[in-house]
Design a protein around this nucleic acid. Structure first.
Lengths: 137, 137
DNA sequence: GCTTGCCCTAGAGTTCACTTCATAGTTTAT
DNA sequence: ATAAACTATGAAGTGAACTCTAGGGCAAGC
């Protein structure tokens, strides 16, 4: 399979695929060269890219991915280690979610203030005093 | 107030403050030059940077911030327009949270599979068949 | 008057995951 | 034979929000 065909099949650009190779995410099991130097991809390449996409979908950087794939290839981890890793990843993402929750809290307070400003400007003033540093004004 | 003093007070680097100025987030109300060309910051600069931090804390890019501050300075929006803007921002952040929720779903499935692999490898195999494409192996 | 420690500018470097570009060789169709 | 369509390489560009560097000018203490 040539590069454009693989790209179409996987919904990637040929540039991205070459980039993954350059970054060491693909090796000779996935891609070899024809006599004209064109890349020729095996069926394993498709599976590899699926795996790459899955890791990306759970918030892995390519650097992490590279490590994870290396360990995957080497069968380097026990099931329990993998469970730990998954839990760590979950915590990481839950923390990012918490940041967004904090943003939402702030936005909700801003909204509350703005709504109050319509209904009861005096109470809104009081709210400002308690909270300090309004969003605007 | 000189730049380092302001930086310490605000928990920013002097580079960041100069960067904000270059990006047009600070103007002559906030910073002027002494005869030796050193920047001299007013009390308004502190308030300005607080405002900048607040906008950043609700997920605003500097570009958005610049626009928001310009409008804020010009008193360009009604309360209702601001309410709309806040609601838009909330939706934006809620959508980002949903992406993380999707990641967590995936991670939870991976975890479930890995736990089952300990308790009942056969059931785990079935799970793989239904889901297709395990995390490793 | 010398060192230390601020301050200035302009510009390059950082990170990430690509994309885009320039240049060139290969294959396929007409 | 030639043009269109594919492939290759290496390097530069993208965006965001800074950080860091180089090369210099002021300021304060001894």
């Amino acid at each position: 399979m040539k590069i454009q065909e693989l790209a179409d099949k996987m919904g990637l650009t040929i540039h991205a695929i070459r980039y993954y190779e350059k970054e060491g995410l693909l090796d000779e099991r996935h891609v070899r060269r024809e006599s004209n130097n064109y890349r020729n991809y095996s069926g394993e390449a498709v599976e590899r890219l699926k795996l790459i996409k899955k890791f990306q979908s759970i918030g892995c950087s390519l650097a992490e991915l590279k490590e994870a794939l290396r360990d995957h290839d080497a069968n380097a981890h026990t099931n329990l280690q993998i469970i730990d890793w998954i839990r760590g990843k979950k915590t990481e993402i839950e923390n990012k979610k918490k940041e967004y929750d904090h943003m939402l809290d702030t936005l909700n307070k801003m909204l509350e203030y703005r709504m109050l400003l319509i209904e009861d400007p005096q109470k809104a003033q009081e709210m400002l005093k308690n909270w300090h540093a309004g969003t605007s004004d």
